[in-house]
């Protein structure tokens, strides 16, 4: 059964037709990389899946439940969909531990002790157990992004959306974040990533979705698709980024 399903999704910004009838079906455990030029609608697509952006036509379901931008719906959705941003968006006035514990305590109403146990386990998973009491601005970009991953994981989401999460990082810090993602993929968590990391998409991803002009232009098994693209647009894109 599909975990995330998009059916003929259309999205407009005013007159600008950004998504032109997207059909996409993501099963539990898949690692789906969405690639494409900037402006092709990749991030918008991702943001529609968790209700951050409104879509005008079609339907999206996550775990069988319909996605809308209605406030209460977005909050219910937050329980099954985690998201990580390009700019980390850690809360600067909270320690790393407090960042990770915030939502479990006030949204899931876990006890402080329970939330702390989870937070420490998640930070351990991303290799930052020793940073529990540090403030975000003391960390490198790669460390901050790993905290953001731990923060999302603490809500035990069914699917994790990653919006260009290595794009704001210095090149030497990209690897540590991708390594965490790879680990998560191995553990079977469902990942949907908008990414420019072609090697990661090929080696770790199970499927690649190439978007062009607001449409899913081509998609398929990651290794096959990237080594043997069918459309001229994808050939051109792969030629440009590799």
């Amino acid at each position: 059964m599909s975990l995330v399903n998009l059916h003929q999704v259309h999205k407009y910004y005013g007159d600008n037709h950004v998504l032109k009838g997207i059909d996409l079906d993501i099963k539990a455990g898949e690692v789906v990389s969405i690639i494409g030029k900037s402006g092709s609608g990749k991030s918008t697509l991702l943001r529609c899946i968790n209700g951050l952006e409104q879509y005008q036509e079609g339907g999206i379901t996550v775990d069988g439940k319909e996605v809308t931008t209605e406030d209460i719906q977005v909050r219910r959705l937050a329980l099954s969909v985690g998201m990580i941003f390009q700019n980390f968006n850690l809360f600067p006035h909270m320690t790393v531990g407090e960042n990770v514990m915030l939502a479990p305590t006030i949204v899931l109403k876990k006890s402080k002790a329970e939330a702390e146990t989870t937070a420490r386990a998640m930070l351990e998973k991303v290799g930052l157990a020793d940073k529990f009491d540090s403030f975000p601005e003391k960390l490198s970009g790669g460390q901050q992004q790993r905290v953001a991953i731990a923060r999302a994981l603490a809500m035990s989401p069914k699917v994790l959306l990653c919006d260009e999460i290595t794009s704001a990082l210095d090149p030497e810090l990209v690897g540590e974040v991708l390594k965490v993602l790879e680990q998560l993929a191995k553990e079977g968590i469902t990942l949907v990533l908008v990414t420019h990391e072609m090697n990661f998409a090929r080696d770790v991803g199970s499927r690649v979705v190439f978007m062009h002009q607001g449409k899913v232009w081509e998609q398929g098994d990651s290794k096959t698709l990237l080594s043997n693209p069918q459309t001229d647009e994808l050939k051109q894109f792969i030629g440009a980024v590799l």
Partner: peptide, 25 residues
């Protein structure tokens, strides 16, 4: 806006976002 979106995708409601995420900074 990113701070507010981060709070939203973690499931915080608006009042919680204001008091926990927005006010201090």
């Amino acid at each position: 806006k990113g701070q507010i979106e981060a709070a939203k995708v973690l499931g915080l409601n608006f009042r919680q976002t204001l008091t926990r995420v927005i006010f201090v900074p």
